[in-house]
């Protein structure tokens, strides 16, 4: 605690302002109940559509935010799709990714020209590959969780970011995304960082002209992978 810390004084001031006692069990109960029940608000109708419509909406929302989307039938198509994407962009056949078991299990040997680098991204990486925990259809948003499986730096340093999301992991609403996180990390607990990504980096700070690639990725390419 810093020598300037005013914790108790500030809390006392808030209680005075509210005319509340710090040991009021009713207020505390209401607060704890809300934290553990986490009741949802209104979930937009567009997040509660049939599955096919949710997937189509996920794609169109991402595309409207300047992301590129490809659909792959099977996980084993991923290595070739990565190589094709790099070639199309005239990039060296090198990719950075984390230790995600889903990515690790792919048959990378089928693309011998491709070099993979594992671990956190560096300033020299031109392309990174991540797996999203979920895709949120209502706004076309990828939900990425930090950790050695998918290091956060991969989401922001390389100019090209490729993200794999399984079609089965596409959900309608943010609320369903939170449910997945709670199932994986427990109640009242998140990974160090949760990144919601809805397109490549952009800015409109100069005369409100929209320009891609402000600081993070210049391009975001999403692979939606079928169940085979």
């Amino acid at each position: 605690m810093s020598r300037f810390d005013q914790r108790d004084e500030i809390l006392a001031r808030i209680r005075r302002a509210l005319g509340a006692a710090d040991d009021d069990p009713e207020r505390r109960l209401a607060v704890m109940k809300r934290l553990f029940d986490h009741p949802p608000g209104t979930v937009p109708a567009r997040a509660r559509r049939p599955r096919d419509a949710l997937v189509a909406q996920f794609i169109s929302m991402l595309e409207s935010q300047a992301a590129q989307v490809s659909r792959l039938e099977r996980a084993r198509d991923i290595p070739k799709a990565v190589v094709d994407t790099l070639r199309r962009r005239n990039l060296a056949l090198r990719i950075r990714h984390g230790s995600d078991p889903y990515l690790a299990a792919l048959d990378w040997a089928s693309e011998p020209a491709l070099t993979r680098h594992l671990g956190a991204a560096t300033a020299d990486d031109a392309a990174g590959l991540s797996r999203a925990l979920a895709g949120i259809s209502e706004t076309g948003t990828l939900l990425l969780a930090s950790g050695p499986d998918n290091p956060t730096t991969i989401n922001f340093l390389p100019p090209l970011h490729i993200v794999v999301v399984r079609e089965a992991d596409i959900v309608g609403s943010y609320e369903e995304g939170w449910a997945q996180l709670r199932a994986l990390y427990g109640e009242r607990s998140l990974p160090r960082a949760v990144n919601l990504v809805s397109g490549p980096s952009r800015t409109a700070d100069i005369e409100q002209t929209l320009i891609m690639g402000a600081h993070g990725p210049v391009a975001l390419h999403v692979f939606i992978v079928g169940s085979d």
Binding site: M61, S64, Q65, G98, G119, A120, A121, T139, G140, T141, S146, G147, P148, P151, T152, T153, L190, P191, R192, A193, V194, N195, L196, V197, S198, G199, P200, S201, R202, A204, G216
Partner: peptide
């Protein structure tokens, strides 16, 4: 704010690097 459906990046940060983390 800007009329976007959502911002490009929304990030929840929850503390320092954890055991096993390679960045942060």
């Amino acid at each position: 704010a800007t009329g976007q459906e959502c911002a490009t990046y929304t990030t929840f940060s929850c503390g320092p690097r954890r055991p096993g983390d390679v960045d942060g």
